[in-house]
Nucleic acid binder design. Structure first.
Lengths: 257, 257
DNA sequence: CGACCTTTTGATTGGCGTCAAAATCTGTGG
DNA sequence: CCACAGATTTTGACGCCAATCAAAAGGTCG
């Protein structure tokens, strides 16, 4: 499973804009001076090679993380060995916080592409909440919003139509990527870098890679998308949204992206 | 949709054990004296007739609730009109808290049987967190645990086998009910009161009522369960757990039941 | 260049949806 | 207490979507 191991990044960014704490959604919008005390909490950045796990379900990770770069997958493994991807983590996402349930955290996270994460020590997180209780309410809200998205996936994932599921997922990932406003979105041809395999897509929507392929081929033939060489180009977004019952408000309303 | 309306209960319990606040998971284990201040927050109990909504998605409910009695369903409605039940709410469950996302709360709740809920004013909840910040972290943990269960549903719901999905759901509801230790569980014949329809089951696992029926009939024929007249009797739990890949730790680890 | 991963395509099978109708249960009013 | 209407359960026939098995073609990396 874990062919490679996580490494401490050789050249961590230390400038103010690149400060890990500033990028964490938890602290967004909080005045700089009130975050002074977080400085000594800043930790390493880690490089996570593809197919490497950041943490595994049923463990208790030592850190919580913010994803800086790359695509990761939050997933659970069923007893039959099937991998259900719960959510694709994109740059900016917050990973690894979860209540200390007896069985540890309930999902695993591993890298789909080479990724860079920033770690924040979990035990210091607890001290932090004691000292700054308002952050806890913010965290409750974040958890709550995340759950809303999870419920959305449950609802939209239960549609029995492969075309709808896949159209929805493509648009979700397209909008989340575009919102980042970085090099992963190319405005010239309305495309994004799409580094995951058709099997990853299948594990997210509950279909086999074979059937995912058939649907993607049909979307291509019908002139809705182009999908080659780790690039996804959205040609007819309106029709795709119709097929997938997709409403971009879902993305806009989610501050965790 | 809403044939009847919610009514204020005529004879609210006011004894200490029945105090609404004491029953809320949020306050569990907190010394009585520290809850003195909550007394003036106690509000009405409401009677919710079957098929009546407690609140609807995209609204912002005025109260948060604790379910005292009855079965309710948390659900979302897709654009095609299909109802996806996210979770059955059983006595003791906490309902209605969610971050103030722009679109309001993301799910609806309505009664499957006549239910009694205790309301706690939402706006006072905010004051409460300001005054007693430790409650916020507890809430974050509750939300987080709830999300873990939601993810479980997503994973186990994606199994492509109707038998597994239904076996899992039956055992989940059986264990959650039994854990309440009230009259809804009958230890003599290992049965629970099971007041929901086969269509409700179908909306929860993403199957039609027709197919749910076929599976239940097969389980009965194979001597795994008996299911008549709003009663569910578990005969061969081991085999059922095998079929449903069910692990009761999931229930035990969830303090929201 | 060769091993491995990913994509693509075809043939076959089975599970579950859909439609339809009968049987049973539940609740309401006379 | 009975009668009746509506809801729920049960059963059968049929069709389609997606899984499965298999194999070839293209891509990628050492």
């Amino acid at each position: 499973m874990n062919k490679k191991s996580i490494q401490i990044r050789q050249e961590p960014h230390t400038s103010c804009d690149q400060c890990p704490v500033r990028k964490m959604t938890l602290f967004r919008g909080i005045p700089e001076q009130q975050l002074e005390w977080t400085k000594h909490y800043r930790q390493h950045q880690f490089v996570v090679p593809p197919k490497t796990s950041l943490y595994l379900e049923h463990t208790k990770p030592d850190y919580v993380y913010t994803l800086f770069n790359g695509w990761m997958a939050m997933y659970q493994t069923s007893q039959t060995g099937k991998r259900q991807i719960l959510r694709f983590a994109l740059p900016g996402d917050f990973l690894g916080f979860q209540a200390d349930g007896r069985g540890g955290i309930s999902h695993s996270v591993s890298a789909l592409t080479e990724s860079i994460v920033c770690g924040f020590p979990r035990d210091q997180l607890k001290n932090m909440f004691d000292e700054h209780p308002k952050l806890a309410l913010r965290l409750a809200n974040m958890e709550s919003r995340d759950m809303a998205l999870c419920q959305q996936h449950q609802t939209f994932g239960s549609r029995k139509d492969a075309h709808a599921s896949i159209a929805f997922l493509l648009l979700e990932l397209f909008h989340r990527t575009r919102k980042q406003m970085n090099k992963n979105y190319n405005a010239d041809d309305n495309s994004i870098i799409f580094p995951i395999t058709q099997e990853d897509v299948g594990d997210a929507v509950g279909l086999t890679n074979v059937h995912v392929n058939r649907v993607l081929r049909k979307f291509t033939k019908d002139g809705l998308i182009e999908c080659h060489h780790r690039k996804l180009k959205i040609i007819d977004e309106i029709k795709l949204a119709e097929i997938g019952e997709f409403n971009s408000d879902i993305i806009a309303g989610n501050p965790l992206i």
